[in-house]
Amino acid sequence: MIATVTSPRFLRAILPALSLAVLLALIFYLNPRTMSYVGLNLMLNLAIPIALATIAQLCVITVNDLDLSIGAYVGFVVCVAATYLHQTPALGVLVLGAGILVYAALGALIHLRNLPSIVVTLGMSFVWLGLAVLVLPTPGGKSPEWIAWLMKLKPAYIPFPIIAAAIIAAVAWFALMRTSYGSILRGSGGNPKAIERAGWSLLKTKVAMFALAGFFGVLSGLSLIGLTTSAQANVAERYTLYSIAGVILGGGDFVGGRVSPVGAVLGAITLTLSAPFLTFIHIPPDWQIGAQGAILIIVLALRAIIDRVERRR
């Protein structure tokens, strides 16, 4: 029993849930008013777009790459949603669909030319930023009604963000961890040579994962526009850092294809709560950004410790 509890696999799986519980407890202690439907709803609203962006990043990390453009991409989607999707829905859908195709094309490009995804996605972050600014040069725009309605739902007893997060986690978990092709996708990150030898196409797996990332990125942007009052190109600037932190906090590895969708969603929620938490402990606004970088560092430090335990066995 002791062996299971202290086994690295267990620690790795429990870390996101544990850190979420600890953070939630601290928040309730600091500000008991948050322990209410309204309080939770307010704090966790933004968890939805962040969780979706985290799942997008998870797809890319599963195939041993990294997406440094997810923040800019979500910002682009927000701007498109606030303009085209609101005014001429058909055009909006087309543009967003094209965005997903671009992501798929990037996956193909990275695979075929053996390019480092860091540099490519860093370049893409400027492409998305530029496109977002072209679409919406100054903050403004308006959210499509149906999205705003969805995001403001108030189901009984359980705040909407919690339900939404549960659905996201369930869908991602099912698609990646339960389906047969999902195991092939993850396998292509764990031992690409073996997957290829067995006759599967590595090009297809890479393209599939990047396209999924693009799809979840779109969902992230759509949910975000329903929550913010006005859109602007850099509204999701921090999402790159959050999404990476969320995947790692959730028990994922940068290489090797070992990821946990449920853990990633829990990690995303934890990071969402870090913002109100920092406010409640009166971190001066100057240090807010730094604190969030520090959180990523702490998360990685914890993981490094767990990995060292793992290696010593």
Partner: peptide, 26 residues
């Protein structure tokens, strides 16, 4: 080794037996 270390034993079996898909594949 030609196994994927990040997958379970059952999932690894599926890699070489693509025919094992559909409901209950695992």
């Amino acid at each position: 080794l030609s196994l994927c270390p990040n997958l379970t034993v059952a999932e690894n079996a599926h890699i070489f037996h693509a025919g094992l898909r559909g409901l209950g594949w695992r």
